[in-house]
């Protein structure tokens, strides 16, 4: 995973609430067996509408999306995070995220920043004309107008993002503990090994 400690640039002032992962990347694009190239299907139904922010040249290549409550709800498809990666998005700012999406985003180096609706409203305004800065080291979002919105983020996730850590590798280093757990289970819950596999 590539390390990320700050994201700076223009932001799509999207703003919608309950943006589901079918909207971020519709099912026909999930037939790929690769992680790359999904940007072409990102927000397809939104882009079908004239005047949408994603096709507005003002925001071309913006690394940030500003959205409403419950961003990334619905399907667990990590393709949503891969699609955002592919379109160059490195951070999403919203009042809340679905649990599965925020995990998927994190594992792909995308920072999910939770801020209250009032802050979102202000950032939606600023985004129309100016860049926004997400500082993961200091857990703060700033604008050229001295706006300063501090945010909370899980320390472990922040640590992994800033250092670009590979979770599988970290966990494999604990193989002894996993083995010990399995040995304990074999004694206490022997039925957990399926009988007919």
């Amino acid at each position: 995973m590539k390390a990320v400690s700050k994201v700076e640039g223009r932001a799509y002032p999207f703003g919608l609430k309950n943006v589901d992962t079918d909207v971020i990347i519709p099912a026909p694009y999930l037939k790929t067996i690769s992680r790359i190239g999904l940007g072409r299907g990102a927000f397809e139904s939104v882009r079908a509408q004239p005047g949408n922010v994603f096709d507005d040249p003002e925001y071309a290549g913006a690394p940030i999306i500003i959205a409403g409550d419950n961003f990334g709800c619905g399907s667990s498809r990590e393709h949503a995070a891969w699609a955002l990666n592919d379109m160059g998005v490195e951070a999403v700012i919203a009042p809340s995220f679905s649990d599965i999406f925020s995990g998927n985003a994190f594992k792909n180096g995308i920072v999910t920043v939770v801020l209250p609706q009032e802050a979102i409203d202000r950032l939606m305004e600023v985004a129309k004309t100016d860049p926004i800065n997400v500082d993961l080291e200091n857990k703060v979002v700033t604008t050229p107008y001295q706006d300063r919105f501090e945010f909370e983020i899980d320390d472990f996730r922040r640590h992994c993002l800033i250092n670009g850590l590979d979770e599988v590798g970290m966990t494999l280093a604990k193989a002894d503990r996993i083995t010990a757990h399995e040995q304990k289970l074999a004694q206490s819950q022997p039925w957990l090994v399926p009988t007919a596999v």
Partner: peptide, 23 residues
């Protein structure tokens, strides 16, 4: 029982575990 993303699928395949915080 809960849904996971593909990175987590890989993590479970490799380690039979997941890194989680209690809900």
């Amino acid at each position: 029982a809960f849904g996971i993303g593909t990175s987590e699928v890989e993590h479970v395949l490799a380690t039979q575990t997941l890194l989680l915080k209690q809900s």
